[in-house]
Amino acid sequence: MYGFEYHKPSSLDEAAKLLADNEEASLIAGGHTLLPTMKQRLAAPSAIVDLGGIADLKGIREEGGNIVVGAITTHDAVAGSDVVQAKIPAMARLAGGIGDPQVRNRGTIGGSIANNDPAADYPAGLVGLGAIVRTNKREIPADDFFVALFETALEEGEIVKEVSFPVPEKAGYAKFHNPASRYAIVGVFVSRGPQGVRVAVTGAGPCVFRVKEMEDALSGNWSADALKGITVPEDELNADLHASAEYRAHLVGVMARRAVQAATA
């Protein structure tokens, strides 16, 4: 890992200023993507701005019927949260299935979504529920936030502050995980609620995507059977040593049906 300056601001404004003053700066929260990337010298920021000292970014609260999760809230905190377990149990299970216990003790929701790894779990959760990402500058609907492979709508100097989740009537998540990394080979999040019916797929393509045909089918008949025969085209799906595009396309159907079966109120 190359050397860098280290800063630990105590407010979001101060963090934004540090980012603006250091062109090659990176934000760090849990560091479970950034530090391995830096060790491989795939990233070499001139400065690290540690968000760990900004108390406002941590925690889970209910606000106007939504569940709001601060950017540096760990996966473990989301998985173990009483309010998340009560209101969106599928989200608690999603968070509890990321990585391993020690990764969940450090990794954060903000870090995960800002990185937008194609195999990460949270992008499916956010798009699958129609969440809103709040930054230090604006609000971005999840559908617009995840743009492409490792690319988000975040602009230079923009920092994720929190994520607001609408509470669904029903939601479920099913993931076929890579047994070594626990990342999703395919993960599907389904929900029915204030944002209508949503089916969001992670792991299969370069970026999280929705499957409209499945959403339409589930809108008419919320059951795993309604998804029978619906396939996704494999042309744009990922293929690697873990799974071919054809296999991933197959898994999208299987995971979507399991997610509906797992869906709880």
Binding site: Y6, K8, G31, P36, K39, D50, Q102, V103, R106, A180
Partner: peptide, 26 residues
Amino acid sequence: DTSQCGACVVHVDGTSVKACTALAMQ
């Protein structure tokens, strides 16, 4: 050294973390 194996697990403020994937400054 890639946060997979867990040989480096210590407790920080009471919870287990992989010490290979945290800066001392953190």
